[in-house]
Design a protein around this nucleic acid. Sequence first.
DNA 1: TTTTGTGAACTAGTTCACAGCT
DNA 2: AGCTGTGAACTAGTTCACAAAA
Lengths: 234, 234
Amino acid sequence: MCLRIRLVKREHKQPAQTVLRESVEPVSELTTNRLSVYLRCLNVLDAAGVRTVSSQAMAEQFHLNAAQIRKDLAYFGEFGVRGVGYYVKELRRHLRQILGIDRGVCVAIMGAGNLGLALADYPGFRDEGFEIVAMFDQSRDKIGHRSRAGVPIYDIRDLRKIVRRERIQIGVIAVPAAAAQGVVDTVAAAGIKAVLNFSPGALRVPDGIKLKSMDLTVSLESLSFFLAQTEDKT
Amino acid sequence: MCLRIRLVKREHKQPAQTVLRESVEPVSELTTNRLSVYLRCLNVLDAAGVRTVSSQAMAEQFHLNAAQIRKDLAYFGEFGVRGVGYYVKELRRHLRQILGIDRGVCVAIMGAGNLGLALADYPGFRDEGFEIVAMFDQSRDKIGHRSRAGVPIYDIRDLRKIVRRERIQIGVIAVPAAAAQGVVDTVAAAGIKAVLNFSPGALRVPDGIKLKSMDLTVSLESLSFFLAQTEDKT
DNA sequence: TTTTGTGAACTAGTTCACAGCT
DNA sequence: AGCTGTGAACTAGTTCACAAAA
């Protein structure tokens, strides 16, 4: 659960003037995930040279719900103009600020195996304002080397030091399942407050640390369930 | 939306006797995802030699909700024994059957780049009944080779033929974002009914095909949002 | 007129609490 | 006594529909 900070125009005669009003309403993760989706839509629109877009037009083009777009955005401020819609560039800038990616976010990847190396060089991250600045492993064979794209691999024992030096804010867990809990504990102890986990099974994190898990097995099983059900309908 | 098939004991004097009762109630994806989680818990319990487990005990050990466990399981049958709980091995077998992984499920990976190769050799899949039988790419440099673990890389133009030959049921999209929609269309045309997508942005699939997306950027942005909010509380 | 922002209505999902079975 | 299975109560999330703004 996060708090929201809503930007509200106080003096609507001075339209650029915004005031930070802090409230204690929680924002659901479903909402924040959709903000990312909207940002991706705006990137497309902006690249296509579109200047303004209504919630309706966006909903149609990207198969979303117009009321939900408006409601999600309205949580954070009054970004729209009645009768016009939203200014694409402006809304994009607002969303990047809300998501905290307007200044680059530094990310470390724990585990320099196949998956870790693939994630380190994944181009989609850098494009959106994330920078993979380090990988960590315990294997002597890997420490001191770099990924193909040049991300250095450090000894996991140096985690704390390098987290501080590189201002690492997010840790990605790409180690075998058996090692995952131990690595998460190390990551938390090093002062990282947000963790993206790719290992299967539940991990425990201390309070105040945000854990997001992408369990590949759960996703495949969900698809398998769908197949099993549709088969049975014969 | 899937249909559920509930196993209900009709003759409770013959406790092993179950009857398939087909109903039209939809099962939410949240529920099916939790079934995977329960299966993972049961694997742990079984490996630890535990014979029976109550919903309460499972909830405590794995930080779940007991009523939800019971309700989720009760959708599919009366697997528990009042006063006792659930037989671990038996429930595990039931869940594997419900999820359709009791007979191995064949999976193909589209795209033999870093991510595709990493997924192909990811050990967590095989462990749970999924077999990565093929990768597909369009690059001459890759076609004809194999992943380190031995998964063959085919020409994407041979997709239809190999899907039929290898009985491929699930396709995983691990190609660059720009190519993703085209590849999904090809996958759908080849008769695959379930797709796991790793590329960012929305994909359109024809009706009757199940698409599940794991958007890495959305997840990282969700974490970044959390960090941005907690910083502001200063 | 067009389109936002938002209360109200609705729908989905979770948790409670207990009857009833073992 | 102990625990499941489940209706009822509750909570969260989505969509509708419209007053107000440009």
